[in-house]
């Protein structure tokens, strides 16, 4: 079929308009989400919400706050971050060429990518299986286990990308000076990749703190701040989830405020990690 130039131009203009419209719709949704959470949350947010734990009748509109969820979320995610870093770093280092053949590294990347995509509810269910096996009840420790498994692939994959970018010459210099593999890894690779590693850890932290499904049955929920690893722990996403589920308006308003706190935490972590990677990569060898 022969099309006239005029028709083609029209098609081009139409498709372009459709593309811009599509992008606009998506961005509009994002703006809408942020606007709704900020405007509704800011109205209900107060200082007592942040510093107090729930008092009697809190879920019927009584006084108190969600300090339990804020502290619980921080405990859970910090604990899980520590475990994840301790596991991710050796894995990311081991993926270097001097440790494993390329085929093994590629296989591990595939395994990590598949794990990255695994739904968080599956991590929750698996965490539950592990807990039953270990004889644990819903607790801070259980939540940390499930969450650290969820964060592991995110962190490792991001770290590994950074480590892969390190110029080979740098490592060759170290080896030519007679350094062993672990010495090269710790003194050259780790130092060079440190900004990226911190960014990776914060990326995983951001994902971890927002995740609800994996800690739903592993961490439980409580009105108190946990005092030991075996106490159940509240968390921000679940605070949002449970409070929006009640029919009382005051409690629902607090769900918006909790969501705003969560959103702010995530934005801060996001911006901070970007800043870190810019600020600390200045002295790197390229």
């Amino acid at each position: 079929m022969r099309l006239t130039m005029k028709w083609r131009r029209r098609e081009e203009a139409m498709m372009k308009a459709l593309m811009v419209a599509s992008l606009a719709v998506i961005l509009l949704f994002l703006a809408g989400i942020i606007f709704v959470i900020v405007s509704r949350g800011a109205r209900a947010l107060s200082w007592s919400m942040i510093v107090q734990t729930p008092k009697g009748g809190y879920y019927l509109g009584g006084g108190g706050g969600i300090a339990n969820a804020i502290v619980g979320s921080l405990y859970l995610t910090l604990g899980a971050s520590i475990i994840s870093v301790l596991l991710s770093l050796p894995i990311a280092f081991a993926l270097q060429r001097e440790y494993v053949p390329r085929a093994v590294a590629n296989l591990t990347r595939l395994a990590l990518d598949v794990l990255w995509g695994t739904p968080s509810i599956v991590y929750g269910a698996f965490g539950f299986v592990v807990m039953v096996y270990l004889g644990l009840r819903a607790s801070l420790l259980g939540g940390i286990i499930a969450l650290s498994l969820l964060m592991l692939p995110i962190m490792t994959r991001a770290m590994e990308e950074v480590i892969r970018m390190i110029p080979l010459q740098l490592k060759e210099i170290a080896y030519s000076l007679g350094a062993t593999r672990i010495e090269t890894t710790l003194h050259v690779v780790l130092r060079q990749a440190l900004p990226g590693i911190v960014t990776a850890a914060m990326l995983a932290f951001g994902r971890g703190i927002g995740d609800a499904a994996s800690i739903l049955f592993t961490a439980g929920y409580t009105d108190y701040i946990p005092h030991s690893l075996l106490d159940p722990a509240a968390s921000l996403p679940l605070a949002v989830f449970f409070q929006i589920g009640t029919p009382i308006k005051e409690v629902q308003d607090r769900a918006y405020a909790s969501a705003l706190i969560l959103l702010i935490v995530i934005l801060v972590v996001n911006l901070f990690s970007r800043f870190m990677s810019l600020r600390f990569s200045r002295h790197n060898v390229r």
Binding site: L30, I37, R40, R207, Y256, A259
Partner: peptide, 17 residues
Amino acid sequence: LMAGIPSVIYGLFGVIV
């Protein structure tokens, strides 16, 4: 940033809007 927003916030937006 959009990918990093927690699902519970998407859910909340769903309930409200």
